[in-house]
Design a protein around this nucleic acid. Structure first.
Lengths: 148, 148
DNA sequence: TATTGTTATACTCTATAACTATA
DNA sequence: TATAGTTATAGAGTATAACAATA
């Protein structure tokens, strides 16, 4: 007869489980960090994508960030309504996106908030550790990043 | 005058961004791995928690897994309807949960599916690398795990 | 024939509030 | 006064289908 089951942690070996829990915790902190700017993490990432590339289009951003085209529309509508973004026709269907002055302003503040958030979350890791983890995480979702 | 902005990846330094993308990709694979068993990742984790501890209660599982009590109810109702779980009164309000034979059976198949999934996702990492990443991830969400 | 941007819609997950019964 | 379990419901986030205009 076996005794009662030993209380070994059933999630101790499940990397995916810890990945998920960590992601949820980190996202919650980021959400709180961006809330004063009235930006969600997804919106901030779109702002970063527009701010980095000159004249990216809406569809391109969706592909880069993994946001469905249908869900980009209301997000961009809000940015336009807030005067954060300007559009310039590339051809009859695509429009190049650039940040207005207000958009660049908010972009910079979101960048600062994200940086503070990263320091708060990952400050306990050395720069080398951060780089090592980042490379491994990238390999998990970005096939062309080389790893795995 | 500045030239056009250089195309530096605006997410290159954002660990949180890569954590999120990796989590989404890994969860999608796990979801697909568990679909033949008609289990969601959350359901499988509950099955694992019941299978590991003798007589845990519904509320305890919620706390362990970060699932709100309100959301545990329908999940457990399904498990009971499927005959996967049995309840035994601990006191007037709590009930100890144990797996039935069918529940243990599904538990073991879910375990196997999760293990195959983990190998597929993380097989490119050495055991030492897996352990190192897991410890870092744990530190991000489980304060008492020591790190950070 | 494929792509862009849009609208409408559905589906899942998660969060909140309220309630009963029990400790 | 706090906790267990439940119900109902609301809000995100995400996914699908369809459409008009353009390539």
């Amino acid at each position: 007869m076996d005794g009662p089951e030993p209380h070994t942690d059933p999630f101790a070996s499940l990397l995916g489980y810890h990945l998920r829990r960590a992601s949820v915790a980190v996202m919650a902190d980021l959400t709180a960090s961006l809330a004063p700017l009235e930006l969600t993490p997804a919106e901030a990432s779109v702002l970063f994508a527009i701010g980095a590339g000159s004249g990216v289009t809406q569809a391109e951003i969706g592909r880069i960030l993994g946001i469905a085209r249908a869900n980009m529309a209301p997000l961009m509508a809000r940015f336009l309504a807030l005067g954060l973004v300007e559009r310039e026709a590339v051809d009859g269907r695509s429009q190049a996106l650039t940040l207005t002055r207000a958009g660049r302003d908010l972009h910079d503040r979101a960048r600062a908030a994200a940086a503070a958030h990263e320091d708060r979350m990952f400050g306990g890791f050395s720069a080398a550790e951060r780089a090592a983890i980042l490379a491994k995480l990238r390999a998990l979702w970005e096939p062309e990043s080389g790893g795995l």
